[in-house]
Amino acid sequence: MVDLEMLQDKPHRNVVRIGDTVRRPLQPWSASVHELLLHLEKIGFPYAPRVLGVDEEGREVLTYVEGESGADGWAKVVDERGLAAMARLLRDYHDAVRDFRPVAAAGWAGGAASDSASDGLVCHGDFGPWNLVWHGLEPVSIIDWDYAWPARPMHDVAYALEYVAPFRDDATCLQWLAYPSPPDRRRRAEVFAEAYGLSGLDGPGGSGLDGSALVDEVIGQQEAVWERARRLAAQGMQPQAEWQESGFLDRTAERIRWSRDNRDLFAPV
């Protein structure tokens, strides 16, 4: 009997594990993502699934990575050891794609086919704790590459910080994100930024950690991701169209307002 597990069962996104493989629907930008994953395999980057091809049902076939992921990831980054490990993995990934220049014409979910990484690199685009596979407090793989796109490295850093600082109110932290008490958001942002080595790449001002500028970066990426989701929803893409209909994008706009109103939790005013 074939070992089969449903990983995600949605009308627009049916993802299954069959043995040691994952089968996922192809997207308009899949060729670009596959080029990225093949690059990571070629250079020996160990923290990404491998592309095995397309099956008889027209689904992409990737290697399955054993471990904890999805909702289990939130508790991993509550501990500062997991938080720092996540940041180090992001830096390792950015270093791995520093010289990668895609040629696929399929484009990206986050931008048009004409986009290039000439002013940055190909970011993961959805680098949250749920999209990592964990062994204890160590992330061993990055998964779900659908939102990869060429951007400044800071986009991935700011995106991750939104969720792991986190840029959420105390009630959300306690009820949904596994925190036993309200987090010290400023401290957590500093831990992540320092573990990533922010001052050595493209931190605000190019040197040192400017907390206020970092908050601006996070709010800027929140707005960029929100605008991208609205654009994809208007094109009928899923799950963004569902997000629009359900009011999720309106709630996202409220979160952006919360970030602006509570920036003093993250950096000196």
Rank of each mutant, 00 (worst) to 15 (best):
A96S: 09
A148Q: 01
P239F: 03
S212W: 14
L7G: 04
E242H: 12
D210P: 06
G197R: 01
E56N: 13
Y93C: 00
G220S: 10
L132V: 02
E57G: 14
D264H: 15
L177G: 01
E138F: 11
A234C: 05
D250T: 12
Y47H: 12
D72A: 13
D126Y: 00
N14L: 13
G200L: 04
K42T: 14
R88N: 04
D20I: 07
P239D: 01
G67I: 00
V191L: 09
L198G: 04
E68Y: 09
D72Q: 13
G19A: 10
I43V: 12
N262G: 06
D250C: 12
G44F: 11
G73L: 06
R231F: 10
R50D: 08
A178T: 13
R24M: 11
W134N: 05
V22N: 00
L38P: 01
A213F: 10
D250L: 12
W176G: 09
Q235R: 14
P28K: 13
D169L: 03
G206P: 07
G200S: 06
S207L: 15
A31P: 12
L161I: 07
I18D: 09
R152Q: 08
A96P: 06
R13E: 12
H12Q: 07
P204I: 10
S212N: 12
F45M: 00
V2D: 15
R251P: 05
A75P: 07
L198D: 02
Y179L: 04
Q240A: 07
A171E: 11
V164P: 01
G53I: 11
P183A: 10
V157E: 00
V103M: 11
H94M: 00
R17M: 02
E5D: 15
E162I: 10
R187E: 11
P153G: 11
A189Q: 13
H39Q: 08
Y163V: 10
R257E: 15
L62C: 06
D92K: 13
D184I: 04
G200D: 08
Y93L: 07
N14Y: 11
G19P: 07
A160R: 03
R260V: 08
E5M: 11
L90C: 01
A160F: 01
R17E: 04
A189K: 03
D156G: 00
W108H: 06
D119Q: 14
D92S: 15
F127L: 02
Y159H: 14
P153L: 05
H34C: 10
A234D: 15
E57N: 13
H124V: 00
R188T: 04
D99L: 11
K42H: 10
V78Y: 09
R59Y: 14
L26Y: 12
L26S: 04
S32M: 06
S199L: 10
P239K: 03
D250R: 13
D55G: 14
R152S: 11
Q238A: 05
A178Y: 08
W29P: 04
G107C: 07
Y64R: 14
V33F: 05
L52P: 02
R91A: 10
L26P: 08
V157C: 08
A224V: 11
R168H: 14
D20A: 13
G107L: 04
P180S: 08
A106W: 08
L214F: 12
F266K: 00
L62K: 05
A234R: 09
L137Q: 12
A234G: 09
W29Q: 01
A31G: 13
G205E: 06
R81T: 13
A113F: 03
N262P: 06
